[in-house]
């Protein structure tokens, strides 16, 4: 049976929100994730679905920026997959080799899937979101200060 349009748009919205949370956790510092877990505690015990692991992802560019893809070079990525006791499975992927951070992010991903805890997870992530937004705003402000207007000078008639 096809899911009704409402159900599938709800599922899409749920997934998009989860992706947004995972994106923030991929950018969070390890200490930030630890502090959030601490704050949300006590947290049910988590068992690894598979051991946390560091590997490589091949990054790609596009010819001319928008054309056919090519392989650019690899990046280190850590991933973790856990299941909370009596709860959901949580996953995390993030650039870098910090397995502890990946595992913490996977636990938070599982907690977020628990409707009773979702709001608390979202709230605990607010300061991280704010820090990331601040950092991007700082880059934009600093960069905007170096904006130039070049003048072309008319050459003489000699």
């Amino acid at each position: 049976m096809q899911p009704s349009r409402d159900e599938s748009s709800n599922a899409n919205a749920w997934r998009a929100t989860r992706q947004g949370v995972m994106a923030v956790m991929a950018r969070a510092e390890s200490a930030e994730l630890d502090a959030i877990l601490e704050r949300l505690g006590p947290v049910p015990a988590a068992s690894n679905l598979k051991p946390p692991e560091v590997g490589l992802v091949m990054l790609r560019g596009r010819t001319g920026g928008d054309g056919a893809p090519f392989n650019l070079g690899e990046a280190t990525v850590s991933r973790a997959a856990i299941r909370l006791e009596g709860g959901a499975a949580g996953f995390a992927y993030r650039l870098g080799r910090d397995l502890k951070a990946a595992r913490a992010a996977a636990i938070l991903d599982a907690l977020w899937q628990d409707e009773a805890r979702r709001a608390a997870v979202e709230e605990a992530l607010m300061p991280v979101r704010a820090r990331l937004a601040d950092a991007a705003a700082t880059v934009r402000t600093e960069t905007a200060a170096t904006k130039v207007d070049f003048f072309t000078l008319v050459r003489g008639e000699d």
Binding site: G55, L56, V57, A75, T76
Partner: peptide, 29 residues
């Protein structure tokens, strides 16, 4: 890098959506 497993391929980077730290053109002022 030869000691690590390959997880897969990422989607192509979108440079149009870059958080730009520097950007100059020598053709258009």
């Amino acid at each position: 890098r030869t000691t690590l497993p390959r997880f897969g391929y990422a989607q192509a980077l979108d440079t149009a959506e870059m958080l730009v730290r520097r950007r100059v053109s020598a053709t258009y002022k």
